[in-house]
Simulated scan of single mutants.
Amino acid sequence: MMLVLASSDDVIEPRIINLIQNVGLFNEVKHLHKQLSLVALTLDKVQSDTCSLADACEFWLDLRENEELQPYRTKIVARFNRQ
């Protein structure tokens, strides 16, 4: 991205350039991507044709205990407990 910025900074809006150069934003995006990947993988497993109810419960429990997802633990537990 930095090479693209260097070669075409007159074409890209300054607001976009600032976002690309924001290292904190980049790190936050990487962290959120990692978290969402865990959830997406779990959803893929749960939606498979071979997933049993016991498997689904195990996957949800794994998500609940995952260190990466601790900020969202209460939401995961609430969703798990929803009837």
Results as ranks from 00 to 15, higher is better:
71 P>G: 06
65 E>R: 10
38 L>C: 07
2 M>Q: 15
7 S>F: 02
17 I>M: 07
19 L>K: 09
56 A>V: 06
46 V>T: 00
33 H>A: 13
77 V>Y: 07
46 V>Q: 02
65 E>T: 01
68 E>A: 08
26 F>L: 12
40 A>T: 14
78 A>L: 12
10 D>H: 11
27 N>T: 07
19 L>M: 11
2 M>G: 09
70 Q>R: 05
80 F>E: 09
34 K>L: 14
2 M>V: 15
70 Q>I: 05
78 A>D: 12
40 A>V: 10
21 Q>K: 14
31 H>Q: 14
11 V>E: 09
25 L>E: 12
52 S>T: 15
34 K>R: 13
43 L>P: 04
29 V>T: 15
14 P>V: 01
20 I>W: 08
79 R>T: 01
37 S>N: 08
1 M>N: 14
7 S>N: 00
25 L>R: 15
24 G>N: 13
56 A>H: 09
48 S>L: 05
65 E>H: 09
12 I>E: 02
13 E>I: 01
58 E>S: 13
37 S>V: 00
65 E>W: 01
63 L>G: 03
33 H>K: 13
58 E>V: 03
27 N>Q: 03
58 E>A: 11
56 A>I: 05
70 Q>N: 06
76 I>P: 04
68 E>Y: 08
9 D>V: 08
77 V>N: 09
24 G>T: 09
67 E>H: 10
65 E>L: 08
26 F>D: 13
6 A>I: 09
18 N>K: 03
76 I>G: 02
80 F>L: 05
63 L>N: 06
41 L>S: 13
54 A>F: 04
79 R>W: 05
58 E>W: 04
73 R>S: 03
22 N>L: 02
8 S>Q: 05
6 A>W: 05
46 V>S: 00
3 L>H: 14
45 K>I: 09
76 I>Q: 02
69 L>I: 03
18 N>C: 01
26 F>A: 14
59 F>L: 12
68 E>K: 06
38 L>G: 01
25 L>W: 13
29 V>F: 15
28 E>M: 04
71 P>T: 03
2 M>R: 15
50 T>E: 10
20 I>K: 03
47 Q>M: 13
41 L>W: 05
39 V>N: 05
14 P>K: 02
79 R>I: 03
59 F>D: 02
39 V>A: 07
71 P>H: 03
9 D>S: 11
81 N>L: 11
8 S>H: 04
23 V>Q: 15
80 F>Y: 14
13 E>P: 01
24 G>V: 08
83 Q>A: 06
45 K>F: 12
18 N>L: 05
58 E>F: 08
38 L>I: 02
2 M>Y: 14
63 L>R: 05
3 L>C: 10
50 T>L: 00
68 E>P: 00
39 V>Q: 06
9 D>M: 07
36 L>C: 07
71 P>D: 04
11 V>Y: 05
58 E>G: 12
19 L>E: 11
29 V>H: 11
49 D>M: 08
28 E>K: 09
17 I>W: 02
70 Q>V: 03
52 S>W: 07
57 C>Q: 11
11 V>Q: 12
67 E>N: 12
46 V>K: 00
62 D>S: 07
17 I>A: 09
29 V>R: 14
53 L>Y: 01
